[in-house]
Design a protein around this nucleic acid. Structure first.
Lengths: 226, 226
DNA sequence: AGGATAGGCGTACGCTGTAAGCCTGTCAAG
DNA sequence: CTTGACAGGCTTACAGCGTACGCCTATCCT
């Protein structure tokens, strides 16, 4: 009875899957080569037959997550489809909160396989459909991408420890009201903020802005025929 | 001649300053207790008399960076002041590229001292001045905050290694055009993108959206008198 | 049958954060 | 002036990290 038949054969995929699982359940700091190896029932050094180094594993995690992107059905008008795409992306990031930290090191999702280019293509298609020039599609892509990632990064995702939240609230409450009047006035809205609603607010801002831009350019084209 | 008089006395401030310096010059991964200690001419364990643990040092870095925020002069109309504030914040993050990764772990700047609340107060004031309700100020704060941080995070800041960029371009070039038509069409704009311009584009989107929102609410108020 | 090779394993090195304890210079109270 | 407390350094030690290097063995091709 050969070993290689008993235990599932080790592959890059299996390693990255295990790493992603560890990250989702125990956090990014728990992701070590030794921990991954334990997860797949192997010694650490065996992993190096299938991945270049740890960085390669982390790249793989990013890629795998991007591959999970769920394409919204293409119904409704263009702004609604943009919204649906953005919501889907947010859900994706929320499902793997720590992936944001990997994106931060990599300066964004850093597409490395065709699969992870597909969501990008979708986004660009939507922008084109919304009436943007090729050039503005790229700009809008960065703008929306920045917003979505930044927002999800800020909203916390995983471990907003109660102790940490408490300390922040205490600190906010202790501020001199005369020096921070607006902060004092709005503080209750910080406390009772709903993530979904906030995300929609910012998304709405950007989409309204987009509409304004498109409308303006139509006027410009009509008059200048550029 | 006492030692404590010869060498500058060790303080939390000095430690955090040294840590920030190491981060800015050698990157976040170089920031270790031993490295910081060496920087201030001391052994690692001595630091623990002044800071709780490494996490405390990293919190201190975030705080110090936020304290460096430069307040734009309050001239011009409200949208221009909003722009100026956003540009200043971007410059701040760009000056310390790796701080984004700390923010990512902390889910945003995580204000911990009055100083780091001051930029927040400014932002909220500007939103109020722009005509937003208290509630919408908080929403706009999150939206703009998300955008700015996400954008700077994506634009790379520091170490966009040439080798990495190359690999990304190669991969993009190798994509099947029929499956990624828009991507192929716009790819040249990705290559020649200018960070400042892109940032302004997204900023413009959000500000236009804000204006639209304010205008709409004025109408709503006039008719409903809410 | 035999040699090549792929894919495991063990050992070892230098790095990390930090717990525990020690040593010394400073300063206040008796 | 002495004594004791204490602040703030230093040393040692430990567990865990990524990974270079080399060895061992099961499988496969000839």
């Amino acid at each position: 009875m050969t070993i290689t038949k008993e235990r599932e054969r080790l592959t890059r995929q299996r390693i990255i899957g295990a790493a992603l699982h560890v990250m989702d359940t125990e956090g990014l700091e728990a992701v070590s080569m030794r921990r991954i190896a334990r997860e797949v029932g192997v010694e650490a050094m065996s992993l190096y037959h299938h991945v270049r180094d740890k960085e390669d594993v982390l790249d793989g995690i990013c890629e795998a997550v991007m591959g999970e992107f769920e394409y919204p059905d293409s119904a409704g008008d263009i702004t609604e489809r943009l919204r649906a795409g953005a919501r889907s992306y947010r859900r994706l990031l929320q499902a793997h909160p720590d992936v944001m930290r990997l994106f931060a090191e990599r300066h964004g999702p850093a597409p490395s396989s065709p699969d992870s280019f597909r969501p990008m293509e979708l986004a660009l298609q939507l922008f084109r459909e919304a009436g943007l020039s090729n050039r503005d599609c790229v700009q809008a892509f960065h703008a929306f991408g920045g917003y979505m990632q930044g927002f999800v990064m800020m909203e916390g995702g995983s471990i907003e420890s109660p102790e940490h939240v408490k300390r922040k609230e205490d600190l906010a409450a202790s501020l001199p009201v005369d020096e921070f009047p607006v902060l004092a006035a709005v503080s209750r809205y910080f406390a009772e903020c709903d993530g979904d609603e906030q995300f929609e607010f910012g998304l709405d801002l950007m989409i309204r802005g987009l509409q304004a831009k498109v409308a303006e350019e139509l006027v410009g084209d009509a008059s200048a025929a550029e």
